[in-house]
Design a protein around this nucleic acid. Structure first.
Length: 561
RNA sequence: GCGCCCAUAGUUCAAUGGAUAGAACACCAGCCUUCUAAGCUGGUUACGUAGGUUCGAUUCCUACUGGGCGUACCA
Protein backbone atom coordinates (compact mmCIF):
# COMPACT_ATOMS: atom_id res chain seq x y z
CA UNK A 1 0.00 0.00 0.00
CA UNK A 2 1.27 3.40 -1.06
CA UNK A 3 0.95 5.30 2.20
CA UNK A 4 2.48 2.52 4.26
CA UNK A 5 5.46 2.38 1.90
CA UNK A 6 6.00 6.12 2.16
CA UNK A 7 5.91 5.93 5.93
CA UNK A 8 8.37 3.04 5.95
CA UNK A 9 10.82 4.87 3.71
CA UNK A 10 10.64 8.06 5.72
CA UNK A 11 10.91 6.15 8.97
CA UNK A 12 14.07 4.37 7.92
CA UNK A 13 15.68 7.65 6.82
CA UNK A 14 14.80 9.35 10.09
CA UNK A 15 15.42 6.34 12.36
CA UNK A 16 11.87 6.25 13.69
CA UNK A 17 9.05 3.76 13.18
CA UNK A 18 6.16 4.13 10.69
CA UNK A 19 3.59 4.43 13.45
CA UNK A 20 5.30 7.61 14.71
CA UNK A 21 3.75 9.56 11.84
CA UNK A 22 0.49 11.37 12.38
CA UNK A 23 -1.90 13.20 10.10
CA UNK A 24 -1.77 16.99 10.42
CA UNK A 25 -4.93 18.75 11.57
CA UNK A 26 -5.19 20.93 8.46
CA UNK A 27 -4.46 20.31 4.77
CA UNK A 28 -2.04 23.25 4.47
CA UNK A 29 0.18 21.62 7.10
CA UNK A 30 0.88 18.73 4.76
CA UNK A 31 -0.10 15.08 4.42
CA UNK A 32 2.05 13.44 7.05
CA UNK A 33 3.68 14.80 10.14
CA UNK A 34 6.34 13.65 12.56
CA UNK A 35 6.21 15.09 16.10
CA UNK A 36 9.79 15.43 17.30
CA UNK A 37 9.40 15.56 21.07
CA UNK A 38 10.68 12.07 21.72
CA UNK A 39 13.47 12.16 19.14
CA UNK A 40 14.65 15.56 20.42
CA UNK A 41 14.89 14.24 23.95
CA UNK A 42 17.17 11.35 23.01
CA UNK A 43 19.38 13.72 21.02
CA UNK A 44 19.43 16.39 23.69
CA UNK A 45 18.03 19.07 21.41
CA UNK A 46 14.94 21.21 21.46
CA UNK A 47 12.22 19.82 19.17
CA UNK A 48 12.01 23.11 17.32
CA UNK A 49 15.74 23.17 16.60
CA UNK A 50 15.72 19.54 15.56
CA UNK A 51 12.82 20.16 13.18
CA UNK A 52 14.73 22.95 11.45
CA UNK A 53 17.89 20.87 11.18
CA UNK A 54 16.13 17.81 9.84
CA UNK A 55 14.08 19.79 7.35
CA UNK A 56 17.20 21.47 6.00
CA UNK A 57 19.20 18.28 5.68
CA UNK A 58 16.34 16.30 4.15
CA UNK A 59 15.85 18.92 1.46
CA UNK A 60 19.46 18.34 0.40
CA UNK A 61 18.99 14.60 0.10
CA UNK A 62 18.10 13.40 -3.42
CA UNK A 63 16.87 10.11 -1.99
CA UNK A 64 14.34 11.95 0.11
CA UNK A 65 13.09 14.18 -2.69
CA UNK A 66 12.16 11.07 -4.66
CA UNK A 67 9.79 9.99 -1.88
CA UNK A 68 7.90 13.16 -1.04
CA UNK A 69 7.53 16.54 -2.68
CA UNK A 70 8.48 18.75 0.21
CA UNK A 71 9.14 18.99 3.92
CA UNK A 72 8.67 21.88 6.33
CA UNK A 73 9.57 22.48 9.93
CA UNK A 74 6.62 23.93 11.77
CA UNK A 75 7.43 24.36 15.43
CA UNK A 76 8.25 20.94 16.86
CA UNK A 77 6.77 19.14 13.85
CA UNK A 78 8.26 17.95 10.60
CA UNK A 79 5.54 18.17 7.95
CA UNK A 80 5.68 16.21 4.71
CA UNK A 81 3.90 17.04 1.47
CA UNK A 82 3.16 14.26 -0.99
CA UNK A 83 3.15 14.76 -4.73
CA UNK A 84 -0.50 14.78 -5.86
CA UNK A 85 0.05 12.94 -9.13
CA UNK A 86 2.03 10.17 -7.43
CA UNK A 87 -0.41 9.91 -4.57
CA UNK A 88 -3.53 9.72 -6.72
CA UNK A 89 -2.16 7.27 -9.26
CA UNK A 90 -0.58 5.03 -6.62
CA UNK A 91 -3.75 4.82 -4.57
CA UNK A 92 -5.90 4.08 -7.60
CA UNK A 93 -3.51 1.39 -8.72
CA UNK A 94 -3.55 -0.17 -5.22
CA UNK A 95 -7.33 -0.28 -5.31
CA UNK A 96 -7.45 -1.62 -8.86
CA UNK A 97 -4.95 -4.30 -7.92
CA UNK A 98 -6.71 -5.55 -4.78
CA UNK A 99 -10.31 -4.80 -5.71
CA UNK A 100 -12.71 -6.45 -3.32
CA UNK A 101 -9.75 -7.32 -1.09
CA UNK A 102 -8.49 -3.75 -0.83
CA UNK A 103 -7.85 -3.03 2.83
CA UNK A 104 -7.30 -6.60 3.97
CA UNK A 105 -4.26 -7.53 6.05
CA UNK A 106 -2.74 -10.69 7.50
CA UNK A 107 -2.31 -9.62 11.12
CA UNK A 108 -4.32 -12.59 12.33
CA UNK A 109 -1.91 -15.17 10.90
CA UNK A 110 -4.81 -17.48 10.03
CA UNK A 111 -5.57 -18.16 13.69
CA UNK A 112 -8.95 -19.83 14.10
CA UNK A 113 -11.35 -17.78 16.16
CA UNK A 114 -14.91 -18.77 16.97
CA UNK A 115 -17.20 -15.80 17.46
CA UNK A 116 -20.35 -16.57 19.40
CA UNK A 117 -23.11 -13.99 19.22
CA UNK A 118 -26.85 -13.53 18.97
CA UNK A 119 -27.49 -15.65 22.02
CA UNK A 120 -31.23 -15.25 21.73
CA UNK A 121 -33.89 -16.93 23.75
CA UNK A 122 -36.69 -18.91 22.22
CA UNK A 123 -40.19 -18.18 23.58
CA UNK A 124 -39.31 -14.53 24.18
CA UNK A 125 -39.51 -11.32 22.18
CA UNK A 126 -36.62 -10.19 19.99
CA UNK A 127 -35.91 -6.52 20.59
CA UNK A 128 -33.46 -3.78 19.66
CA UNK A 129 -31.06 -4.86 22.40
CA UNK A 130 -30.65 -8.16 20.57
CA UNK A 131 -29.99 -6.27 17.37
CA UNK A 132 -26.95 -4.54 18.84
CA UNK A 133 -25.52 -7.91 19.75
CA UNK A 134 -26.35 -9.38 16.38
CA UNK A 135 -24.81 -6.59 14.31
CA UNK A 136 -21.80 -6.15 16.56
CA UNK A 137 -20.98 -9.84 16.55
CA UNK A 138 -21.54 -10.24 12.84
CA UNK A 139 -19.29 -7.28 12.01
CA UNK A 140 -16.58 -8.33 14.46
CA UNK A 141 -16.52 -11.74 12.84
CA UNK A 142 -16.17 -10.22 9.38
CA UNK A 143 -13.61 -7.61 10.47
CA UNK A 144 -11.40 -10.25 12.02
CA UNK A 145 -11.57 -12.28 8.84
CA UNK A 146 -10.48 -9.25 6.80
CA UNK A 147 -7.57 -8.87 9.21
CA UNK A 148 -6.33 -12.36 8.51
CA UNK A 149 -8.13 -14.53 11.06
CA UNK A 150 -10.17 -17.56 10.19
CA UNK A 151 -13.44 -16.84 11.88
CA UNK A 152 -16.30 -19.17 12.66
CA UNK A 153 -19.50 -17.26 13.44
CA UNK A 154 -21.84 -19.24 15.65
CA UNK A 155 -24.95 -18.62 17.67
CA UNK A 156 -26.04 -20.22 20.90
CA UNK A 157 -29.76 -20.28 21.47
CA UNK A 158 -31.20 -20.60 24.92
CA UNK A 159 -34.21 -22.82 24.39
CA UNK A 160 -34.25 -24.54 27.77
CA UNK A 161 -34.49 -21.94 30.51
CA UNK A 162 -37.25 -21.05 32.93
CA UNK A 163 -38.49 -18.44 30.44
CA UNK A 164 -39.75 -21.21 28.15
CA UNK A 165 -41.85 -22.58 30.99
CA UNK A 166 -43.29 -19.13 31.70
CA UNK A 167 -44.38 -18.71 28.12
CA UNK A 168 -45.92 -22.16 27.92
CA UNK A 169 -47.70 -21.73 31.24
CA UNK A 170 -49.38 -18.61 29.89
CA UNK A 171 -49.98 -20.10 26.44
CA UNK A 172 -51.96 -22.90 27.97
CA UNK A 173 -54.12 -20.76 30.25
CA UNK A 174 -54.89 -18.12 27.56
CA UNK A 175 -56.25 -20.02 24.55
CA UNK A 176 -56.62 -16.76 22.60
CA UNK A 177 -52.93 -16.92 21.76
CA UNK A 178 -53.21 -20.28 20.05
CA UNK A 179 -56.36 -19.09 18.31
CA UNK A 180 -54.60 -16.17 16.61
CA UNK A 181 -53.40 -16.24 13.03
CA UNK A 182 -50.09 -14.96 11.81
CA UNK A 183 -46.49 -15.63 12.69
CA UNK A 184 -46.48 -17.68 15.85
CA UNK A 185 -42.86 -16.98 16.75
CA UNK A 186 -43.61 -13.35 17.41
CA UNK A 187 -46.71 -14.23 19.33
CA UNK A 188 -44.64 -16.20 21.81
CA UNK A 189 -42.83 -13.01 22.71
CA UNK A 190 -46.08 -11.29 23.58
CA UNK A 191 -47.15 -14.32 25.51
CA UNK A 192 -43.93 -14.27 27.51
CA UNK A 193 -44.22 -10.58 28.38
CA UNK A 194 -47.70 -11.14 29.72
CA UNK A 195 -46.60 -14.22 31.64
CA UNK A 196 -43.71 -12.40 33.30
CA UNK A 197 -46.10 -9.71 34.47
CA UNK A 198 -48.68 -12.13 35.82
CA UNK A 199 -46.21 -14.37 37.58
CA UNK A 200 -44.81 -11.56 39.66
CA UNK A 201 -45.65 -12.18 43.29
CA UNK A 202 -48.13 -14.90 42.35
CA UNK A 203 -47.02 -17.83 44.53
CA UNK A 204 -49.79 -20.13 43.37
CA UNK A 205 -48.82 -19.66 39.75
CA UNK A 206 -45.18 -20.34 40.56
CA UNK A 207 -46.10 -23.82 41.73
CA UNK A 208 -47.80 -24.42 38.40
CA UNK A 209 -44.76 -23.00 36.67
CA UNK A 210 -42.44 -25.41 38.44
CA UNK A 211 -44.59 -28.29 37.22
CA UNK A 212 -44.28 -27.03 33.64
CA UNK A 213 -40.51 -26.70 33.96
CA UNK A 214 -40.27 -30.21 35.34
CA UNK A 215 -42.05 -31.68 32.34
CA UNK A 216 -39.75 -29.83 29.98
CA UNK A 217 -36.65 -30.99 31.84
CA UNK A 218 -37.88 -34.57 32.02
CA UNK A 219 -38.75 -34.35 28.34
CA UNK A 220 -42.04 -36.02 28.97
CA UNK A 221 -45.69 -35.01 29.05
CA UNK A 222 -48.03 -32.55 27.43
CA UNK A 223 -45.96 -29.46 28.19
CA UNK A 224 -42.86 -31.06 26.74
CA UNK A 225 -44.76 -31.73 23.52
CA UNK A 226 -45.91 -28.12 23.47
CA UNK A 227 -42.34 -27.02 24.17
CA UNK A 228 -41.10 -28.94 21.13
CA UNK A 229 -43.73 -27.41 18.88
CA UNK A 230 -43.33 -23.84 20.09
CA UNK A 231 -39.55 -24.08 20.06
CA UNK A 232 -39.73 -24.71 16.33
CA UNK A 233 -41.82 -21.58 15.87
CA UNK A 234 -39.26 -19.47 17.68
CA UNK A 235 -36.39 -20.98 15.78
CA UNK A 236 -37.98 -20.38 12.43
CA UNK A 237 -38.81 -16.82 13.49
CA UNK A 238 -35.14 -16.28 14.36
CA UNK A 239 -34.13 -17.77 11.01
CA UNK A 240 -36.44 -15.34 9.30
CA UNK A 241 -34.82 -12.44 11.15
CA UNK A 242 -31.28 -13.59 10.33
CA UNK A 243 -32.18 -14.08 6.71
CA UNK A 244 -33.79 -10.70 6.34
CA UNK A 245 -30.81 -9.00 7.98
CA UNK A 246 -28.25 -10.98 6.00
CA UNK A 247 -26.66 -12.74 8.98
CA UNK A 248 -25.14 -16.17 8.50
CA UNK A 249 -23.88 -18.61 11.08
CA UNK A 250 -21.68 -21.57 10.47
CA UNK A 251 -23.41 -23.41 13.27
CA UNK A 252 -26.15 -22.81 15.80
CA UNK A 253 -25.92 -24.46 19.20
CA UNK A 254 -28.87 -25.03 21.51
CA UNK A 255 -28.86 -25.19 25.26
CA UNK A 256 -31.19 -28.19 25.18
CA UNK A 257 -28.53 -30.09 23.25
CA UNK A 258 -25.69 -29.18 25.62
CA UNK A 259 -27.38 -29.57 28.97
CA UNK A 260 -26.96 -33.36 29.41
CA UNK A 261 -23.24 -33.19 28.80
CA UNK A 262 -23.19 -30.08 30.98
CA UNK A 263 -24.68 -31.97 33.88
CA UNK A 264 -22.06 -34.70 33.47
CA UNK A 265 -19.37 -32.05 33.59
CA UNK A 266 -20.87 -30.63 36.76
CA UNK A 267 -20.47 -34.06 38.36
CA UNK A 268 -16.92 -34.25 37.04
CA UNK A 269 -16.05 -30.81 38.38
CA UNK A 270 -17.61 -31.69 41.72
CA UNK A 271 -15.38 -34.74 41.97
CA UNK A 272 -12.37 -32.67 41.05
CA UNK A 273 -13.23 -30.18 43.76
CA UNK A 274 -13.78 -27.26 41.41
CA UNK A 275 -17.44 -27.12 42.45
CA UNK A 276 -18.89 -27.69 45.90
CA UNK A 277 -22.33 -28.25 47.39
CA UNK A 278 -23.63 -25.40 49.49
CA UNK A 279 -27.07 -24.67 50.89
CA UNK A 280 -28.44 -27.48 48.75
CA UNK A 281 -27.07 -26.00 45.55
CA UNK A 282 -23.95 -26.67 43.50
CA UNK A 283 -21.70 -23.65 43.30
CA UNK A 284 -18.25 -22.51 42.30
CA UNK A 285 -16.82 -20.66 45.27
CA UNK A 286 -14.43 -18.13 43.74
CA UNK A 287 -14.40 -15.73 46.64
CA UNK A 288 -10.69 -16.10 47.24
CA UNK A 289 -10.08 -14.80 43.70
CA UNK A 290 -12.37 -11.84 44.25
CA UNK A 291 -14.94 -13.35 41.93
CA UNK A 292 -17.69 -14.19 44.39
CA UNK A 293 -19.84 -17.27 44.02
CA UNK A 294 -21.39 -18.73 40.88
CA UNK A 295 -24.40 -21.01 41.35
CA UNK A 296 -24.48 -23.89 38.85
CA UNK A 297 -27.36 -26.08 40.02
CA UNK A 298 -30.34 -24.73 41.97
CA UNK A 299 -31.18 -26.20 45.36
CA UNK A 300 -34.24 -27.78 43.74
CA UNK A 301 -31.89 -29.71 41.49
CA UNK A 302 -32.63 -27.88 38.23
CA UNK A 303 -29.77 -26.56 36.19
CA UNK A 304 -28.70 -22.98 35.72
CA UNK A 305 -27.22 -21.45 32.61
CA UNK A 306 -23.52 -22.13 33.35
CA UNK A 307 -23.98 -25.89 33.32
CA UNK A 308 -24.65 -25.98 29.61
CA UNK A 309 -21.94 -23.40 28.94
CA UNK A 310 -19.32 -25.78 30.34
CA UNK A 311 -20.22 -28.42 27.80
CA UNK A 312 -20.40 -25.97 24.93
CA UNK A 313 -16.95 -24.58 25.67
CA UNK A 314 -15.42 -28.03 25.72
CA UNK A 315 -17.19 -28.92 22.50
CA UNK A 316 -15.92 -25.81 20.76
CA UNK A 317 -12.31 -26.52 21.59
CA UNK A 318 -12.46 -30.23 20.94
CA UNK A 319 -14.54 -30.34 17.79
CA UNK A 320 -13.34 -27.21 16.03
CA UNK A 321 -9.66 -26.95 16.93
CA UNK A 322 -9.97 -23.23 17.61
CA UNK A 323 -7.31 -20.92 19.03
CA UNK A 324 -9.75 -18.60 20.70
CA UNK A 325 -13.41 -18.52 21.60
CA UNK A 326 -14.94 -15.06 21.64
CA UNK A 327 -18.25 -14.52 23.40
CA UNK A 328 -20.03 -11.40 22.21
CA UNK A 329 -22.27 -10.78 25.17
CA UNK A 330 -23.63 -7.76 27.05
CA UNK A 331 -21.00 -6.19 29.33
CA UNK A 332 -23.23 -6.81 32.34
CA UNK A 333 -22.16 -10.42 32.15
CA UNK A 334 -18.51 -9.46 32.58
CA UNK A 335 -18.26 -11.04 36.00
CA UNK A 336 -19.83 -14.25 34.76
CA UNK A 337 -17.21 -14.69 32.05
CA UNK A 338 -14.40 -13.99 34.51
CA UNK A 339 -15.88 -16.69 36.70
CA UNK A 340 -16.17 -19.09 33.77
CA UNK A 341 -12.54 -18.45 32.81
CA UNK A 342 -11.40 -19.07 36.38
CA UNK A 343 -13.42 -22.30 36.56
CA UNK A 344 -11.70 -23.65 33.45
CA UNK A 345 -8.34 -22.60 34.82
CA UNK A 346 -8.99 -24.39 38.13
CA UNK A 347 -10.20 -27.45 36.24
CA UNK A 348 -7.02 -27.48 34.20
CA UNK A 349 -8.91 -26.94 30.94
CA UNK A 350 -6.80 -24.94 28.55
CA UNK A 351 -9.59 -22.92 26.92
CA UNK A 352 -8.70 -19.51 25.57
CA UNK A 353 -11.98 -17.67 26.07
CA UNK A 354 -12.57 -13.95 25.61
CA UNK A 355 -15.61 -12.03 26.62
CA UNK A 356 -16.19 -9.25 24.13
CA UNK A 357 -18.61 -6.99 25.94
CA UNK A 358 -20.62 -4.07 24.72
CA UNK A 359 -22.94 -1.83 26.64
CA UNK A 360 -26.69 -2.16 26.50
CA UNK A 361 -29.46 -0.39 24.64
CA UNK A 362 -31.81 1.68 26.69
CA UNK A 363 -34.69 4.00 25.88
CA UNK A 364 -35.26 7.65 26.68
CA UNK A 365 -37.83 6.69 29.27
CA UNK A 366 -35.61 4.14 30.95
CA UNK A 367 -34.34 0.60 30.69
CA UNK A 368 -36.13 -1.79 28.40
CA UNK A 369 -38.23 -4.23 30.32
CA UNK A 370 -40.71 -6.73 28.99
CA UNK A 371 -42.39 -6.74 32.38
CA UNK A 372 -43.42 -3.08 32.15
CA UNK A 373 -43.88 -3.18 28.39
CA UNK A 374 -41.18 -0.55 27.94
CA UNK A 375 -39.55 -2.23 24.99
CA UNK A 376 -39.04 -1.67 21.27
CA UNK A 377 -39.23 -4.99 19.49
CA UNK A 378 -37.44 -5.98 16.34
CA UNK A 379 -40.76 -6.15 14.52
CA UNK A 380 -41.70 -2.61 15.54
CA UNK A 381 -38.43 -1.03 14.56
CA UNK A 382 -38.01 -2.79 11.24
CA UNK A 383 -41.58 -2.09 10.19
CA UNK A 384 -41.25 1.56 11.09
CA UNK A 385 -37.89 1.87 9.32
CA UNK A 386 -39.24 0.17 6.21
CA UNK A 387 -42.34 2.37 6.09
CA UNK A 388 -40.26 5.52 6.26
CA UNK A 389 -37.80 4.35 3.64
CA UNK A 390 -40.57 3.32 1.28
CA UNK A 391 -42.34 6.65 1.64
CA UNK A 392 -39.10 8.54 1.00
CA UNK A 393 -38.42 6.56 -2.16
CA UNK A 394 -41.91 6.94 -3.55
CA UNK A 395 -41.85 10.72 -3.23
CA UNK A 396 -38.57 10.82 -5.12
CA UNK A 397 -39.20 8.20 -7.79
CA UNK A 398 -42.79 8.19 -8.88
CA UNK A 399 -41.89 6.11 -11.91
CA UNK A 400 -40.43 3.17 -10.00
CA UNK A 401 -42.48 -0.01 -9.82
CA UNK A 402 -43.39 -1.64 -6.53
CA UNK A 403 -40.77 -4.32 -6.81
CA UNK A 404 -37.97 -1.81 -7.26
CA UNK A 405 -39.26 0.35 -4.42
CA UNK A 406 -39.39 -2.67 -2.18
CA UNK A 407 -35.90 -3.80 -3.03
CA UNK A 408 -34.32 -0.41 -2.35
CA UNK A 409 -36.43 0.25 0.75
CA UNK A 410 -35.37 -3.09 2.16
CA UNK A 411 -31.69 -2.35 1.58
CA UNK A 412 -32.00 1.09 3.17
CA UNK A 413 -33.85 -0.35 6.15
CA UNK A 414 -31.30 -3.04 6.93
CA UNK A 415 -28.43 -0.60 6.47
CA UNK A 416 -30.04 2.01 8.71
CA UNK A 417 -30.57 -0.42 11.57
CA UNK A 418 -27.06 -1.85 11.35
CA UNK A 419 -25.35 1.50 11.08
CA UNK A 420 -27.22 2.94 14.05
CA UNK A 421 -25.92 0.15 16.25
CA UNK A 422 -22.39 0.03 14.85
CA UNK A 423 -21.56 3.72 14.73
CA UNK A 424 -21.41 4.03 18.51
CA UNK A 425 -18.37 2.59 20.33
CA UNK A 426 -19.13 -0.64 22.12
CA UNK A 427 -18.41 0.85 25.54
CA UNK A 428 -21.21 3.39 25.24
CA UNK A 429 -24.78 2.87 26.34
CA UNK A 430 -27.05 3.47 23.37
CA UNK A 431 -30.06 5.52 24.30
CA UNK A 432 -32.28 4.54 21.44
CA UNK A 433 -34.45 7.23 19.90
CA UNK A 434 -36.68 6.12 17.04
CA UNK A 435 -36.74 9.55 15.36
CA UNK A 436 -32.98 9.96 15.51
CA UNK A 437 -32.25 6.42 14.45
CA UNK A 438 -34.47 6.47 11.39
CA UNK A 439 -33.41 9.75 9.83
CA UNK A 440 -31.85 9.81 6.39
CA UNK A 441 -29.37 12.62 6.75
CA UNK A 442 -26.26 13.27 8.78
CA UNK A 443 -24.15 10.45 10.16
CA UNK A 444 -26.32 7.68 8.75
CA UNK A 445 -26.16 4.72 6.40
CA UNK A 446 -28.47 6.53 3.98
CA UNK A 447 -25.93 9.35 3.62
CA UNK A 448 -23.23 6.84 2.76
CA UNK A 449 -25.47 4.95 0.36
CA UNK A 450 -26.60 8.15 -1.29
CA UNK A 451 -22.99 9.14 -1.88
CA UNK A 452 -22.43 5.75 -3.47
CA UNK A 453 -25.52 6.00 -5.64
CA UNK A 454 -24.48 9.35 -7.07
CA UNK A 455 -21.08 7.99 -8.02
CA UNK A 456 -22.69 4.96 -9.60
CA UNK A 457 -24.99 7.25 -11.55
CA UNK A 458 -22.06 9.16 -13.04
CA UNK A 459 -20.25 5.96 -13.92
CA UNK A 460 -23.37 4.65 -15.66
CA UNK A 461 -23.56 7.77 -17.79
CA UNK A 462 -20.02 7.44 -19.07
CA UNK A 463 -18.86 3.92 -18.92
CA UNK A 464 -15.46 4.60 -20.36
CA UNK A 465 -13.19 2.20 -18.62
CA UNK A 466 -10.01 2.96 -20.54
CA UNK A 467 -6.44 3.39 -19.42
CA UNK A 468 -5.93 6.84 -17.99
CA UNK A 469 -3.07 9.00 -16.86
CA UNK A 470 -3.94 9.49 -13.22
CA UNK A 471 -1.07 11.86 -12.62
CA UNK A 472 -3.29 14.49 -14.27
CA UNK A 473 -5.38 14.50 -11.12
CA UNK A 474 -3.71 17.24 -9.15
CA UNK A 475 -6.75 19.16 -7.94
CA UNK A 476 -6.57 19.72 -4.14
CA UNK A 477 -9.86 17.87 -3.74
CA UNK A 478 -8.44 14.93 -5.65
CA UNK A 479 -5.41 15.00 -3.41
CA UNK A 480 -7.67 15.03 -0.33
CA UNK A 481 -9.78 12.20 -1.72
CA UNK A 482 -6.74 10.06 -2.45
CA UNK A 483 -5.37 10.68 1.05
CA UNK A 484 -8.63 9.52 2.58
CA UNK A 485 -8.81 6.46 0.30
CA UNK A 486 -5.27 5.52 1.20
CA UNK A 487 -6.18 5.30 4.88
CA UNK A 488 -8.81 2.60 4.52
CA UNK A 489 -6.51 -0.23 5.49
CA UNK A 490 -5.34 1.62 8.59
CA UNK A 491 -8.96 2.06 9.64
CA UNK A 492 -9.68 -1.62 9.11
CA UNK A 493 -6.58 -2.72 11.00
CA UNK A 494 -7.34 -0.40 13.89
CA UNK A 495 -10.97 -1.48 13.99
CA UNK A 496 -9.88 -5.12 14.03
CA UNK A 497 -7.27 -4.64 16.72
CA UNK A 498 -9.62 -2.66 18.93
CA UNK A 499 -12.59 -4.79 17.91
CA UNK A 500 -14.51 -1.65 17.27
CA UNK A 501 -16.69 -1.33 14.13
CA UNK A 502 -17.40 2.33 14.90
CA UNK A 503 -13.92 3.16 13.59
CA UNK A 504 -14.96 1.93 10.15
CA UNK A 505 -18.31 3.70 10.39
CA UNK A 506 -16.58 7.01 11.05
CA UNK A 507 -13.94 6.39 8.40
CA UNK A 508 -16.62 5.79 5.79
CA UNK A 509 -18.53 8.87 6.84
CA UNK A 510 -15.41 11.00 6.45
CA UNK A 511 -14.72 9.42 3.08
CA UNK A 512 -18.27 10.19 1.97
CA UNK A 513 -17.91 13.79 3.11
CA UNK A 514 -14.74 14.20 1.06
CA UNK A 515 -16.45 12.55 -1.92
CA UNK A 516 -19.47 14.86 -1.69
CA UNK A 517 -17.17 17.84 -1.43
CA UNK A 518 -15.37 16.68 -4.57
CA UNK A 519 -18.65 16.02 -6.35
CA UNK A 520 -19.79 19.58 -5.84
CA UNK A 521 -16.45 21.17 -6.60
CA UNK A 522 -15.23 19.25 -9.64
CA UNK A 523 -17.19 18.29 -12.70
CA UNK A 524 -16.48 14.88 -14.11
CA UNK A 525 -18.61 14.38 -17.19
CA UNK A 526 -17.95 17.83 -18.60
CA UNK A 527 -14.20 17.77 -18.08
CA UNK A 528 -11.76 17.49 -20.99
CA UNK A 529 -11.40 13.98 -22.38
CA UNK A 530 -8.14 13.06 -20.63
CA UNK A 531 -9.26 14.51 -17.31
CA UNK A 532 -12.63 12.87 -17.63
CA UNK A 533 -11.32 9.36 -18.11
CA UNK A 534 -8.86 9.87 -15.27
CA UNK A 535 -11.60 11.14 -12.96
CA UNK A 536 -13.84 8.24 -13.86
CA UNK A 537 -11.02 5.96 -12.80
CA UNK A 538 -10.79 7.79 -9.51
CA UNK A 539 -14.54 7.39 -9.02
CA UNK A 540 -14.30 3.67 -9.70
CA UNK A 541 -11.66 3.48 -6.98
CA UNK A 542 -13.91 5.41 -4.59
CA UNK A 543 -16.77 3.09 -5.41
CA UNK A 544 -14.65 0.06 -4.65
CA UNK A 545 -13.48 1.45 -1.31
CA UNK A 546 -17.00 2.44 -0.27
CA UNK A 547 -18.37 -0.92 -1.33
CA UNK A 548 -15.68 -2.73 0.64
CA UNK A 549 -16.49 -0.66 3.70
CA UNK A 550 -20.22 -1.19 3.38
CA UNK A 551 -19.69 -4.91 3.05
CA UNK A 552 -17.56 -4.91 6.19
CA UNK A 553 -20.40 -3.34 8.14
CA UNK A 554 -22.87 -5.66 6.48
CA UNK A 555 -24.94 -3.49 4.18
CA UNK A 556 -25.51 -3.05 0.49
CA UNK A 557 -23.98 -0.65 -1.99
CA UNK A 558 -26.90 0.73 -3.99
CA UNK A 559 -26.56 1.71 -7.65
CA UNK A 560 -29.68 3.84 -7.33
CA UNK A 561 -31.77 5.21 -4.52
C1' G B 1 -20.72 -2.43 51.49
C1' C B 2 -17.39 -4.15 47.56
C1' G B 3 -16.25 -4.14 42.25
C1' C B 4 -16.69 -2.32 37.09
C1' C B 5 -18.11 1.48 33.43
C1' C B 6 -19.37 6.44 31.94
C1' A B 7 -19.02 12.16 32.38
C1' U B 8 -16.76 16.83 25.97
C1' A B 9 -21.38 22.10 22.29
C1' G B 10 -28.78 22.75 23.47
C1' U B 11 -28.88 17.13 22.00
C1' U B 12 -26.33 12.49 20.20
C1' C B 13 -21.44 11.11 19.53
C1' A B 14 -15.62 11.62 18.13
C1' A B 15 -10.39 12.44 18.78
C1' U B 16 -5.47 13.31 21.15
C1' G B 17 0.31 13.19 26.65
C1' G B 18 1.49 18.38 22.77
C1' A B 19 -0.08 22.36 16.36
C1' U B 20 -6.77 26.44 16.24
C1' A B 21 -10.74 19.78 20.91
C1' G B 22 -13.79 17.42 15.55
C1' A B 23 -18.71 15.70 13.44
C1' A B 24 -23.94 15.06 13.17
C1' C B 25 -28.69 16.90 14.65
C1' A B 26 -31.17 21.38 16.06
C1' C B 27 -31.20 26.88 14.93
C1' C B 28 -30.07 31.10 11.31
C1' A B 29 -28.48 32.64 6.16
C1' G B 30 -27.50 30.89 1.22
C1' C B 31 -26.93 27.13 -3.31
C1' C B 32 -31.03 22.98 -8.02
C1' U B 33 -30.75 24.98 -17.10
C1' U B 34 -23.09 20.82 -13.36
C1' C B 35 -23.13 14.75 -13.19
C1' U B 36 -29.62 12.13 -7.83
C1' A B 37 -30.83 18.87 -2.95
C1' A B 38 -31.33 11.70 1.04
C1' G B 39 -26.49 16.81 -1.24
C1' C B 40 -23.27 21.39 -0.64
C1' U B 41 -21.48 26.39 1.57
C1' G B 42 -21.26 29.93 5.76
C1' G B 43 -22.61 31.27 11.05
C1' U B 44 -23.45 30.32 16.83
C1' U B 45 -22.02 26.97 21.20
C1' A B 46 -18.17 22.26 24.96
C1' C B 47 -13.48 18.98 27.87
C1' G B 48 -18.25 17.51 35.77
C1' U B 49 -15.15 19.52 40.49
C1' A B 50 -10.43 19.66 43.17
C1' G B 51 -5.55 18.09 43.54
C1' G B 52 -1.06 15.32 41.61
C1' U B 53 2.71 13.45 37.78
C1' U B 54 4.84 16.18 33.37
C1' C B 55 8.47 21.06 29.75
C1' G B 56 3.14 20.29 28.46
C1' A B 57 -3.05 16.83 30.88
C1' U B 58 -9.37 17.03 28.03
C1' U B 59 -6.13 12.44 27.74
C1' C B 60 -2.29 9.31 32.97
C1' C B 61 -2.97 8.99 38.72
C1' U B 62 -5.93 10.21 43.36
C1' A B 63 -10.22 12.08 45.75
C1' C B 64 -14.99 14.04 45.18
C1' U B 65 -19.76 14.80 42.63
C1' G B 66 -23.38 12.91 39.28
C1' G B 67 -25.35 8.76 36.24
C1' G B 68 -25.37 3.49 35.03
C1' C B 69 -24.25 -1.69 35.82
C1' G B 70 -22.77 -6.08 38.54
C1' U B 71 -22.44 -8.54 43.13
C1' A B 72 -25.71 -17.32 45.32
C1' C B 73 -29.91 -20.09 43.01
C1' C B 74 -32.23 -14.58 35.88
C1' A B 75 -29.34 -15.15 31.48
Amino acid sequence: MYLQEIKEQLASMLEVVPTDFVYPPAADLGDLSLPLFALAKTRGLSPVELAKELAASLKESPKFIGVVKNVNAVGPYLNFYLDSGNLVSSVISDIEKFGIRYGESDNGHEEIVMVEFSNANTHKEYHIGHLRNLFYGDTISRMLRLNGYQTIPVSYINDFGIHTAKTLWNWRRNPEFAAQDGPKGRLLGECYAQAAKELEGNEEAKVELAAVMKQIEKRKGEMYELWKETREWSISYLDEIYQRLGIKFENIFYESEEIDEGLRMVEEFLQRGVFIRSQGAVIADLDEYGLGVLPIIRSDGTALYPAADLALARRKFQAYDINESIYVVDIRQGLYFKQLGKIFELAGENFNITHLGYDFVTLKNGMMSSRTGNVITYAQIINEAYTRAEKEIITRHEDWDAEKVNKIAEALTVAALKFEMLKISADKVITFDMEEALRFDGFTAAYLQYTGARIASILRKADENIAADYSLLIHPKEHALAMQLSQYQEALVKAGAQRDPSIIARYLFELAQVVNDYYHEVNILKASTDEKIARLGLLRAVKQALANGFRTLGFAYLEEM
